[in-house]
């Protein structure tokens, strides 16, 4: 018999701390497989965020640095400038990348920093207990928007991929989702392509992954997938936003 699917060696044996059905685990696997398939384990350095993925350094079988909240692109810049031939990626949630770290991500793109950002957008703050994020949908209830996000009070959700695609230094920007098998495979191809863009020294790359947070959305993992399909994808259209 031949193996059709097995866990990549780029993931450690550590049991992931994520809640049941949390899609972080899928994103971790896709990133790890991309590194494995590109044969760049020995020169890849990951920068992990503050948020639910704060322990991601336990799960990737590569050198990693833990960044302060939102600062991962700056930390990645420091690493990349010291070792330009390393493959350097950030792994960031929506609070990290789209709120506290907007300056760092925009400016990394602006410099055409040859790093890859893996942006996990689940429209909520997970680790701190389900507060509103800049990506929270209008009307979506969170612990800090208990009556639903009101756009007159706190604006409409931010589309980071579209915004970053307008920046000259961005070389590859794509938004993907994890709601079904086909999209998971597309997400994998996108992540691999982003790494290839970096390796070809073309500029900044980012993959936005529409993800779920069953626990803080108050839904079962399966219901959360349906909610993502019905609510997030219409507002955050999938596809390549920038490719040079």
């Amino acid at each position: 018999m031949t193996k059709v699917f097995q866990k990549t060696k780029l993931l450690t044996d550590e049991v992931m701390h994520y809640c049941p059905g949390c899609t972080h685990g899928i994103v971790h696997r896709l990133v790890a497989e991309a590194i494995d398939e590109l044969g760049v384990q020995g020169k890849t350095v990951g920068v992990v965020p503050v948020g639910c993925a704060v322990f991601a350094y336990k799960y990737f079988n590569i050198d990693t640095q833990e960044a302060a909240h939102g600062r991962a692109p700056a930390v990645a810049t420091g690493i990349k400038r010291v070792h330009p031939d390393n493959v350097v990626f950030t792994y960031q949630g929506d609070g990290d990348l789209a709120s506290i770290g907007t300056a760092e991500i925009v400016q990394a793109a602006h410099r055409g920093e040859k790093i890859t950002a893996i942006f996990v957008n689940n429209a909520i703050y997970g680790m701190t207990g389900g507060q509103m994020a800049p990506t929270t949908l209008v009307g979506q209830k969170t612990t800090t928007s208990p009556y639903g996000r009101d756009k007159d009070h706190c604006g409409s959700p931010i589309r980071m991929s579209e915004m970053l695609a307008t920046i000259e230094g961005s070389a590859y920007i794509e938004r993907v989702a994890l709601n079904n098998n086909a999209n998971i495979m597309k997400a994998k191809r996108a992540i691999k392509k982003a790494f290839e863009t970096q390796i070809a020294k073309k500029g900044f790359s980012m993959i936005e992954v529409l993800s779920t947070c069953p626990t803080n959305w108050g839904k079962s993992p399966v219901e959360a997938m349906e909610w993502l399909e019905e609510n997030m994808i219409p507002y955050y259209p999938l596809g390549v936003k920038k490719e040079v």
């Binding site: 031949t2 193996k3 059905g21 972080h24 994890l178």
Partner: peptide, 19 residues
């Protein structure tokens, strides 16, 4: 049918498929 759709969506990577 060993399509591995289950394994690909498993967040905890606990499924292995052989054919």
């Amino acid at each position: 049918i060993a399509c591995a759709a289950c394994a690909r969506t498993c967040p905890d990577v606990v499924i292995e498929i052989e054919k």
